[in-house]
Amino acid sequence: MADVWRHAWLLARKDLLVEFRSRTAILSALVFTVLVLMVFNFGRDPTAVAAVDLAPSILWVTFTFAAMLALNRAFQLELENQALDGLLLAPVSRSSIYLGKLMANLVFVATVEAVGLPLFALFFNVPILHVLGPLLGVIALATVGFVAVGTLFSAMTARTRFAELLLPVLLLPFMIPPLIWAVLATGALLAGRPLSEAAGWLRLLAAFDIVFVTLAFVLFPATVNE
């Protein structure tokens, strides 16, 4: 079991090293985040719509797009020189490959979120420090949810034509439930509602995560073994 994690970590580190070298995906994600935040800010009429009403939706649109960018390149990397075959030949379990990808994707998305969240608070003048703890909890849980499913699906779509179109279509129904709960919880937290209200949605997010991370972990070998 320790081996599984060790190998996963080696794989994740490799992914992050490659991403750090090429930098294209992370930069696009960061640029898009800033762009969306700016457009939403200029686009709204401050007298008509309070920032707090729109805030959760805007935040989650940016995070979702960052996740999609990460997921799209996740397995493309392995197909370039058939490195995936190399991974399958090596004495590492298939689960390590999934875990490694998952961890690397999470770091990628977390990086974008770490930049997006402060910018969001800044541009929209939304105080978040008083609920920072629970807010980070919501963000973490929701992100794990759709990145877990997305990592599994990207292993399948990477080998098809129109991979970049197919992945969002497949992922959409799986992203909506955690997004709904995340937007509701974020809204409740930012509006200063008692923590107990958000707790219900946090529980749902946690349940979704546990179920789907396990499921993806179990199903991943079926996508790469012949």
Binding site: T160, L170, P173, A222
Partner: peptide
């Protein structure tokens, strides 16, 4: 759409099964 995008029947069946199971759990 996934089925349409995969030409190899064995691979297509496996991918469909994975997606179907995820749908059921959803």
């Amino acid at each position: 759409l996934l089925r349409g995008a995969v030409t190899d029947p064995g691979l297509r069946a496996r991918y469909s099964a994975v997606l179907g199971i995820c749908g059921l759990v959803l």
